[in-house]
């Protein structure tokens, strides 16, 4: 039980990667606050799985791109738990379109959820971490931020922003016992990838030197490592878990 009674918030925590991260923390004894924005169905199925692992969890329905919702959500957690040790900024959306067809709405939404959401959640939690001189902030970025990808100018910009944000915030927090890192997952078999057609899937597989998609647990392992005591001297880093993709 490496994370016994550690208090963790995971944004976008009821599906895909976020869910795998949440369940991994719960298995290690952590208290988990799972944020989601709208999908009540997957929230209740994740809740059912969590119930088998722990009693210490909270479901947090909030749009991370709204400052007032984020403040309300974090205050709700702090009222119940007093403090938070670990924040995983995982919530993200995609609205893939070639730039020529990419309207403002799809640009804004992706930047607001992915990048602004990371800023808002980090900002809302930072005081409680400073007060205890301990904290772990782990952001989720993407290979798209590093290598670029056609149809993802909005998404890659948001994820690139997260890399720069991670580096700057790590400098602000380093002396205060708070580490800030990012995990860059390659192509992971989540419903988003599973639902692609066979041809696209085999194209993607051909790009990965290891010849297979990653598992959500591969990413969760890295997140848990960065959150652990063992990673106490690592900050401002982008750790890629992608089977050799980048």
């Amino acid at each position: 039980m490496e994370f016994k009674d550690k208090r963790v918030i995971i944004t976008g925590g009821t599906k895909g990667l976020g869910k795998a991260i949440a369940l991994s923390f719960a298995r290690e004894g952590a208290w988990v606050g799972i944020n989601y924005s709208s999908d009540d169905k997957s929230a209740s199925s994740t809740e059912a799985e969590l119930k088998r692992l722990t009693t210490k969890f909270i479901l947090l329905k909030a749009d991370v791109s709204s400052g007032s919702s984020v403040r309300k959500m974090i205050n709700n957690v702090l009222d119940q738990w007093e403090y938070v040790d670990i924040l995983v900024n995982n919530a993200g959306v995609i609205r893939d379109k070639l730039l020529m067809f990419l309207d403002e709405k799809d640009w804004d939404r992706v930047l607001e959820v992915n990048l602004k959401g990371t800023y808002l959640c980090s900002r809302a939690i930072i005081k409680t971490m400073i007060a205890r001189r301990f904290g772990r902030i782990i952001n989720i970025t993407s290979p798209s931020a590093i290598t670029g990808r056609a149809g993802q100018t909005n998404y890659s910009a948001s994820k690139g922003g997260i890399i720069s944000f991670t580096k700057s915030l790590s400098k602000e927090m380093a002396r205060l016992g708070i580490t800030v890192n990012a995990v860059c997952p390659g192509i992971i078999s989540t419903p988003m990838i599973e639902n692609l057609d066979q041809e696209t899937k085999s194209d993607l597989l051909n790009m990965i030197p290891m010849g297979k998609f990653g598992k959500p647990e591969d990413i969760a392992s890295m997140v848990l490592f960065l959150a652990s005591e063992k990673a106490g001297y690592i900050t401002g880093q982008i750790l890629t878990v992608d089977g050799g993709l980048t």
């Binding site: 400073i130 602000e172 002396r175």
Partner: peptide, 13 residues
């Protein structure tokens, strides 16, 4: 300025 962050948090507390 980083020291100031800690003081801001302490004063609020």
């Amino acid at each position: 300025s980083i020291d100031a962050l800690e003081l801001v948090v302490a004063i609020e507390k």
